[in-house]
């Protein structure tokens, strides 16, 4: 028998170093007389350097929650805190990678990666070395001068990740970043991103409907249900170094079974 160190019933667990905190967020969409509760009193704390995921069925409000965390959507009630301070809107401290390709088509790959750096007023030479560094990490140094339209879907998403990381965000928010990719590319990117996260130790908050992906990448998986409530938080105690083979181990499958059952 395996036991799961869940935090069921105590969502407001106090942790010492909450990088990003989502506090009692509720979002109600009103359309005429109808009110639709997309997110229902959700509280999540992101521990520094941790990778956490939210899994949930489509339409459960997980994307809305992430957009609220990014400051892109206003919550009906509740607040978002970065390092203990309430943030009023979007900012470079919370970088984001979207499901759809959001590269700026009018900029070359290098200029896309440099976009945030240029906004900050970073000197050109510093920008160049930083862009070089991150394009090298995502393995696209040869494509620096290409326009996004010349890249494949997986390459575009790698550039989007490089662009978000080059901007040195304190938290990286990801909205189904591998959702639009074919399964091979998806697994490659999962492994790649896992390595990247291990090296950089950045705090990541990711949304996905893919349970395997969530377990593979995370230290902590939050399960959201159709009513927009956080149902359960599962800590994933798998070894720090992970490869795709791990998805077939009994421990991994136990987690998978547990979360799939929680989602039902």
């Amino acid at each position: 028998m395996t036991t799961f160190p869940t935090t069921l019933g105590q969502p407001n667990r106090v942790t010492s170093a909450a990088k990003l905190e989502i506090r009692h967020i509720t979002k109600i969409f009103r359309k005429g007389k109808q009110a639709n509760v997309a997110v229902d009193d959700v509280s999540v704390q992101l521990v520094s350097n941790e990778f956490s995921c939210i899994v949930g069925p489509s339409g459960c409000g997980k994307s809305t929650l992430l957009n609220i965390a990014a400051g892109l959507v206003k919550a009906t009630s509740g607040e978002v805190l970065v390092d203990g301070e309430v943030v009023p809107g979007p900012g470079a401290d919370r970088g984001m990678v979207f499901q759809n390709y959001t590269l700026f088509p009018w900029l070359s790959v290098a200029k896309n990666v440099a976009f945030g750096l240029d906004l900050k007023g970073m000197p050109q030479s510093e920008q160049r070395s930083k862009v070089e560094y991150y394009l090298n990490i995502v393995g696209l140094s040869d494509c620096a001068k290409a326009y996004p339209k010349e890249l494949s879907g997986g390459m575009k998403q790698r550039v989007a990740i490089a662009r978000a990381l080059a901007n040195d965000p304190e938290v990286l928010l990801m909205d189904e970043p591998f959702g639009a990719l074919d399964s091979q590319t998806k697994e490659q990117l999962q492994e790649f991103f896992h390595e990247l996260w291990r090296k950089s130790q950045i705090t990541v908050f990711m949304i996905t409907h893919d349970v395997e992906e969530a377990i593979f990448l995370s230290q902590r998986v939050h399960v959201m249900d159709k009513s927009g409530k956080l149902r359960e938080t599962v800590e994933i105690s798998l070894p720090a170094h992970r490869d795709l083979e791990m998805k077939l181990t009994p421990e991994f499958l136990d987690y998978k079974r547990h979360i799939i059952h929680a989602l039902r």
Binding site: L72, F98, T102, F104
Partner: peptide, 10 residues
């Protein structure tokens, strides 16, 4: 998304 990603880049 194009506008949102710009916001999150500062």
């Amino acid at each position: 998304e194009t506008l949102n990603v710009a916001y999150t880049l500062g």
